[in-house]
């Protein structure tokens, strides 16, 4: 029993970090109604920013947030304004412009290859890393401290985002645009500004995930890819555009991943993850919480 408990804890902690990353993707989807295929690359970018900040300044890994969050916000904001918005304007009568998928996929490839050119293919471990290998020992259970902090940061971020969307003027405007763009513009809300702000916030959440990961996860140019794929699964599982759905979806994927190998070979876990994905797409495309969910 204790043996499983260890895996359950690992799965929940790692899963909550998947959920954190998915939070950014689900926010962007909820507002723009398109999947940002470059989200995993934004995570990679956030991880490199965190990595270089720490290795160049010697700051504590978590203090790199001070740089990562605003830098990633501006990056996402600019990405939306420069690349995605022109497509929306050109295809204003299309609700889910396919071109956005093509462009975000293009950005994914470009960013990953740019990282390869600039930083090489090396797997980089964070240094200095005061959290390296730190464990919390509870009897026979070991809890990885950086994963625990990652889980806490996921919960704090989810709570802060929920508060922001409910209690602030910009947050309400984001919800209004995600529910009815045209009606929102009749309230004096600029949908272009809201799209860019949502992309900025979603991207800075990818940055926070990056900061949470670097103390125990190596950085390399394609590090975003496995996360990207899990993220899509999570967002579909949790219901597109739902905050609790993203967190819960993340934990489910984390558990499948950590408990799966106990019962079967690793390839089967992957199969189960994608199986869940397809099952939900067919049986309940609205996810666990149903389509009518306001964040």
């Amino acid at each position: 029993m204790l043996y499983y408990l260890q895996d359950v804890i690992d799965g929940v902690l790692m899963g909550s970090i998947y959920g954190l990353l998915a939070l950014g993707l689900t926010l962007i989807f909820g507002v723009l109604k398109v999947i940002n295929f470059a989200h995993g690359s934004f995570l990679m970018l956030g991880m490199y920013v965190a990595y270089w900040t720490v290795s160049l300044t010697g700051l504590h890994p978590y203090l790199s947030l001070i740089l990562v969050v605003p830098a990633m916000f501006l990056f996402g904001y600019g990405f939306q304004k420069a690349l995605v918005q022109p497509i929306f304007k050109a295809e204003s009568d299309v609700r889910e412009p396919i071109t956005v998928i093509i462009v975000t996929t293009g950005v994914w490839y470009i960013l990953d290859n740019l990282a390869l050119l600039l930083f090489g293919p090396d797997y980089r471990a964070l240094t200095p890393n005061p959290l390296k290998g730190k464990m919390l020992e509870l009897g026979e259970i070991f809890i990885s401290l950086p994963k625990l902090y990652g889980c806490i940061s996921a919960l704090v971020t989810a709570g802060a985002l929920t508060w922001f969307l409910r209690a602030t003027r910009t947050g309400r405007a984001i919800r209004a645009v995600s529910l009815d763009r045209e009606a929102a513009s009749l309230m004096g809300i600029s949908q272009w500004r809201i799209f860019a702000v949502a992309m900025g916030i979603g991207t800075s959440i990818a940055g926070i995930s990056g900061v949470a990961l670097t103390p125990f996860y190596n950085v390399y140019p394609t590090v975003g890819v496995p996360f990207d794929v899990k993220c899509f699964v999570i967002v579909v599982l949790g219901g597109l555009g739902s905050i609790p759905g993203a967190m819960l979806g993340g934990v489910i994927i984390g558990l499948v991943e950590s408990l799966g190998p106990v019962f079967m070979t690793a390839t089967w876990t992957e199969a189960i993850v994608y199986g869940l994905f397809l099952l939900f797409l067919f049986v309940k495309p609205s996810g666990l919480f149903g389509v009518k969910y306001d964040w």
Binding site: R169, R175, A176, L179, D180, E182, A183, K292, Y293, D294
Partner: peptide, 21 residues
């Protein structure tokens, strides 16, 4: 607008607040 076009999943108060955006 025609057909009201309220923000269906938002509260009455939030709908009114958004009106004063």
């Amino acid at each position: 607008p025609e057909g009201r076009r309220l923000f269906s999943l938002m509260s009455v108060r939030d709908n009114l607040e958004v009106g004063a955006h």
